[in-house]
Design a protein around this nucleic acid. Sequence first.
DNA 1: TGCTTTTTTTGCCAAATGGCAACTGCTATT
DNA 2: AATAGCAGTTGCCATTTGGCAAAAAAAGCA
Lengths: 189, 189
Amino acid sequence: MKELIEYILQFGNLNKQQIDLIASKATELELRKNEYFSEAGKIPTQVGFVVKGIIRICCYGNEGEEITKYFIDENRLVVDYENFDANLVSSDYLQAVTDCKLIVFSKRDWEELYNAIIGWDKIVSRAVQKAFQIHLERRTALVSEDAVTRYLSFMEKFPTLVNRVPQAYIASYLGITRFSLSRIRKNIH
Amino acid sequence: MKELIEYILQFGNLNKQQIDLIASKATELELRKNEYFSEAGKIPTQVGFVVKGIIRICCYGNEGEEITKYFIDENRLVVDYENFDANLVSSDYLQAVTDCKLIVFSKRDWEELYNAIIGWDKIVSRAVQKAFQIHLERRTALVSEDAVTRYLSFMEKFPTLVNRVPQAYIASYLGITRFSLSRIRKNIH
DNA sequence: TGCTTTTTTTGCCAAATGGCAACTGCTATT
DNA sequence: AATAGCAGTTGCCATTTGGCAAAAAAAGCA
């Protein structure tokens, strides 16, 4: 919980009362490896914060391949934001890559915070914007890199993930096959 | 100007007085092909709206290659948002791909709107978020596609740009060489 | 521990993409 | 009309990446 508060305070100030209100609405959620935080075909119902573990965002491509779009690890918000916000059916899965411990807010509780805390909307939109920005930057970099460079940048950007995530997921995030990734790793070490 | 107002009203309501205020701060700006709207090494100083023409966002990669990150055409906001907002030196160029006509707001005027119009911050953050979202989606799709598919999706997403933008720019946006793009086009037609 | 299942590696070859130089064609300018 | 300057194309070949099947290694489970 301390981590969540710290995370939020990056984006704006809150007094003790407001912090307590947020804490009072928070619930713990555990997910076992491979379980879903939210699913394609459904409307996302909660906002989460990763206390322990790794979540990936993924979907299925035109030929049925699994595509990993992003990884979210400790001390990050996890939410299918655009669909959560707009009450739309998502086309992505948010899946636990490892066993996870999360702090979650129901949609209802989350929305109550907008009324109860002045400036909450600003805090949220800054947090979301920052997250989009970083995500976009990484994606953009990938497009113009070759496979080896993609993997090297991945290790720079996500140094703590390399050994906790199946290679096939990393490969699909990088837009290369798991075979290629395996060969690249061999040549680097 | 009508287009700008329409664009803004997508993201929230404004009364006539507020609209007039916005209009009163707007300035026209013409850019000739290849001129810059904002430059790497500088702090972005204005927000623009493209009335006519195409702008591209680009930068230089590690080997000195030019990388086109995105295109912005008619009826879209054009701004190096994160750096504009945070007063940071940018590492991107925003360059006119064709002769352009823009509506622009100085940083000072833009900030006055936050004080003068209640809810302006919400409108802006919705607009920015939407833009990020779309941009991110496109980038993400590119990563897992092969060169031919990248070009086909480009034509779907930017049908009006294909014949107005030099192929080399499109190629660098897609993360392929201009030679490959030329061959791909030959095989498709 | 032993067995099954999943993940990763590897060999072999095919297909896709890149790199370079030369060539073509267009446009703008004089 | 002549020329210069880009943008785009093409041929030739090298390099990178993919695809598949089989083997090896690791992880999970009874």
